[in-house]
Design a protein around this nucleic acid. Structure first.
Length: 431
RNA sequence: GACCCCAUCGUCUAGCCUGGUCUAGGACAAGAGCUUUUCAAGCUCUCGACACGGGUUCAAAUCCCGUUGGGGUCACCA
C-alpha cells in the first residue's frame, strides 16, 4: 500500500511550491490507490503558529487535497527522544554540551562511506559521507532537528514514498544514514524540480504572489491553479493542456515527472483560468461573486435578486480572466451614479447626441416587449433611418450607459439595465 | 568555495530511456489578419529552440566525456 505524505511547516502560508508538492503527493496516492498523509512540522515553537496551520489546511482543502491521516510533530517529542536514546545506547550517537547553551544535545556520528540514493525521478545519486558533518538529533532545548524528526516520522508512520522538492536532495544522504542506524527500511524517494520566479531563483514575493490563498483571493479557480501546477514539470501527453484532475489521476506516474526546474508564468495561468471560467457553472460562480458584491455595497445582504445576478455573471463569464474582474467590470449594473471613464467620454461623448439619444428613447418607450431582440431591432431601425453606421451610435451609447468602452454586447447590457436606468443615464446627455 | 541537481522556442513542454519516422510537434506570450458592436472568446497565419565543444556511430536533440550556464544544499531553521 502506497503511503505518501505532505509535511508543511506552519511558519508561513502554504506557498505555490508547497501546493505543488502536495499536489504530486496527493495525485500519486490517488493514482496508486494509496493514502495521503499530512504531517505538521511544528517543532519550532517560536515560529509555528496556529493561524498558519489553519491557513495551510484551508488551502489544501480548497485545492481539493483531502488527507487520510494527520500528525503533529509537537505531539510526538517523546517518540523522538526514545529513538535518540536508542542510538545513544548503541553508541551511534553522543551527547555534547556547549558553554553557551544550557542542556545537552544528542549528536549522530556520521561514519565515512558512500551513500547511494535511488531517486524515482532522477535515478541514482551518490554522496560521500566524509563530507557530511555529525548531525544533531536532539537540540539542547530538547526539541528534535528536522532531519531526525522527519526520518522517525516517515518510518513510524509507514511512509513508502517520500515525494518532496529538489531542495531536499542534500538532506537525503543524512536521512538515509539515520534510517540505517535505526534499522528502518528506506522508503523510495522522488525529488520534484523547484518552481522558479521569472527573475530566476526561487519564487519570491517580489515577483508576485506566492501563497496559494493569495491566488484564491485574486479570483483564480482551484481547478485552474491545480491544472497549471500540474503542467509545471509534467505533461499528460497528446499535446493535452487542459486536463481534468480525474483524468490526470489515470495518467500520472512519478517516472514521467520532469527533472528541470520550471518558471512560474502568470500569463499561462490567466489563460487557463479563463478556460475554466468559461466552463464553470454560472450558479457556482455566482455564489462566489455575491459576497464580493455585498462587500462593495453593490447589493444588500438579505435583499437581492439572485437570478438577475446569475444572468449578469453569464454575460461576463466568457471574458473574465479572474473572478475578481466581475465587480469591476459589472459595476454599472449596481451603482446609481455612473463612473464614466474620462478618456472614453472624450472619445465618444464629445459631441451633442441629444437628438440621437432622444429618438432612441422614444423608440424604446413604445416597444411592446423589452427584450434583447426587440431592442436591437429598434436600434437598427433608428440608425438606418438616420443614415448612420451602427457603430457610430453603439460606442457612444455604451459609454453613456456603462461608463466604459469595453464590456458585454450592448443590447444585452441594455436589456439587463432596464428601460428606467437607460432613460435616466441617457437623459443626462439630452439638452 | 565544496558537494549535489539540471540544460529543447521568451515561458511551459512533446520527443530522449529503446539513436534514423525531427527540414524538432503543441500550448502560453508576442505580432498580423478574419469575425465584429467594444472587450474577451474563437479561427487563420507569422516570429521563435535542441547551450557550446569533443567523441561513439553509416546516422545524435536522443548515448558518453568535458566546458559553460542556471539552480539547490552546506544551522542545536524546517
Amino acid at each position: 500500500m502506497v503511503r505518501v505524505r505532505f509535511a508543511p511547516s506552519p511558519t508561513g502560508n502554504l506557498h505555490i511550491g508547497g501546493g505543488r508538492t502536495a499536489l504530486f503527493n496527493w495525485l500519486y496516492a490517488q493514482a496508486k490507490d494509496g493514502k495521503f498523509i499530512l504531517r505538521i512540522e511544528d517543532t519550532d515553537k517560536l515560529r509555528s503558529k496556529q493561524e498558519y496551520v489553519d491557513e495551510i489546511l484551508n488551502s489544501l482543502q480548497w485545492m481539493g487535497f483531502n488527507w487520510d491521516e494527520i500528525y503533529y510533530q509537537s505531539h510526538r517529542f517523546n517518540i523522538y527522544a526514545e529513538f535518540a536514546q536508542k542510538l545513544l545506547k548503541e553508541g551511534k550517537a553522543y551527547t555534547e554540551k556547549s558553554p553557551e547553551r544550557q542542556g545537552e544535545a544528542i549528536i549522530f556520528k556520521v561514519m565515512p562511506q558512500q551513500v547511494k540514493i535511488n531517486d524515482l525521478i532522477r535515478g541514482e545519486i551518490e554522496f560521500n559521507a566524509e563530507l557530511i558533518k555529525d548531525q544533531v538529533l536532539i537540540k539542547s532545548d530538547g526539541t528534535p532537528t528536522y532531519n531526525f524528526a522527519c526520518v522517525v516520522d516517515d518510518a513510524t508512520t509507514d511512509i513508502t514514498h517520500v515525494i518532496r522538492g529538489d531542495d531536499h536532495i542534500s538532506n537525503t544522504p543524512k536521512q538515509a544514514l539515520l534510517y540505517e542506524a535505526l534499522g528502518f527500511k528506506l522508503p523510495k524517494f522522488a525529488h520534484l524540480p523547484l518552481i522558479m520566479g521569472i527573475e530566476g531563483g526561487r519564487l519570491s514575493k517580489r515577483t508576485g504572489a506566492t501563497a496559494i490563498s493569495d491566488y484564491r483571493k485574486m479570483g483564480y479557480l482551484p481547478g485552474a491553479l491545480v491544472n497549471y501546477l500540474l503542467l509545471l514539470s509534467w505533461a499528460p501527453g497528446n499535446n493535452c493542456e487542459l486536463i481534468d484532475i480525474n483524468e490526470a489521476i489515470k495518467l500520472f506516474d512519478l517516472s514521467d515527472v520532469n527533472k528541470a526546474a520550471a518558471t512560474f508564468d502568470l500569463k499561462k495561468l490567466n489563460w487557463l483560468n479563463n478556460q475554466y471560467l468559461k466552463n464553470e457553472d454560472s450558479d457556482k460562480l455566482t455564489d462566489e461573486i455575491i459576497p464580493m458584491l455585498i462587500e462593495k455595497n453593490y447589493i444588500r445582504k438579505d435583499n437581492f435578486d439572485r437570478n438577475y445576478i446569475v444572468s449578469l455573471v453569464k454575460l461576463f463569464q466568457p471574458r473574465m480572466s479572474v473572478v475578481n474582474d466581475f465587480p469591476d467590470w459589472a459595476d454599472f449594473f449596481f451603482v446609481d451614479e455612473l463612473n464614466i471613464d474620462p478618456a472614453a467620454a472624450e472619445k465618444y461623448l464629445n459631441k451633442d447626441l441629444s437628438r440621437e439619444f432622444k429618438l432612441l428613447l422614444e423608440r424604446l418607450k413604445v416597444l411592446q416587449s423589452f427584450d434583447i431582440v426587440s431592442i436591437e431591432e429598434s436600434f437598427r431601425g433608428l440608425v438606418s433611418e438616420l443614415g448612420i453606421e451602427a457603430k457610430a451610435l453603439i460606442h457612444p451609447l455604451r459609454v453613456a450607459l456603462t461608463g466604459k468602452t469595453i464590456g458585454p454586447g450592448l443590447f444585452e447590457a441594455m436589456y439587463y439595465l432596464g428601460s428606467e436606468r437607460i432613460c435616466k443615464r441617457l437623459g443626462k446627455f439630452i439638452r
